[in-house]
Design a protein around this nucleic acid. Structure first.
Lengths: 100, 100
DNA sequence: TTGGCATATCGGGAAAAGTCGATATACATT
DNA sequence: AATGTATATCGACTTTTCCCGATATGCCAA
């Protein structure tokens, strides 16, 4: 994975916020309906409402984060749930502390 | 310092390379004339030659890195020497490992 | 199978970043 | 003072990013 792409993914206030919100889904998305959301993640609509940007924008932001392995997605029925990809984030930490 | 700005500063291949080159000035800038360059850093012209972009572009890139506390500058006569700001880079590591 | 949601993708307009050449500034030498 | 050199800043142009609304896709329920 290209380092530049990862940093680009992180170069946006909303995307950084999403990553942060997903640290504590229960706290940040109290209206979440899916009872299993702690495992599976938070659906796009919830994130969109919280971010206050358009549906298409948030959908794209999430796929940008996904391409950089910062979040991962699970499709369940008509919903796509996103959660942090702690593996990828850990790897980023290593890249930064060793290669930067 | 705004996290987004730091990530933007890192969202460019040449700027990442500069940061890396400055890890080992002696190795990466063998034509360096200033005998004290290990302490003071590498001058803009040397970095520009190595990067192969225009003088104005590199000058701006260096000030972008400086604004994010990733490098620091020392003016000596008509030269400006840049070196890594290890303090700032360490702080970035902390930001990333705690806040991301 | 038709309609209704949730999400993804497409096309576009506005803003920001990338990059250059030209010019300005600042210092050093004659 | 005049010239030369190193760096910074400016103005312009191109490419990329930021967002949006509209449309497409995929799934579910009636």
């Amino acid at each position: 994975m290209d380092q530049v792409e990862i940093f680009k993914a992180l170069s946006n206030k909303t995307r950084l916020q999403i990553l942060n919100w997903l640290k504590e889904p229960a706290k940040n998305f109290p209206d979440q309906l899916n009872p299993d959301f702690e495992n599976v993640g938070v659906c796009v609509g919830q994130i969109q409402m919280k971010a206050g940007l358009s549906q298409s924008t948030i959908s794209e932001y999430l796929s940008i984060l996904q391409r950089s392995n910062l979040v991962c997605a699970t499709r369940v029925g008509q919903w796509t749930y996103y959660k942090r990809n702690e593996e990828g984030i850990k790897m980023l930490n290593q890249i930064i502390s060793t290669e930067l």
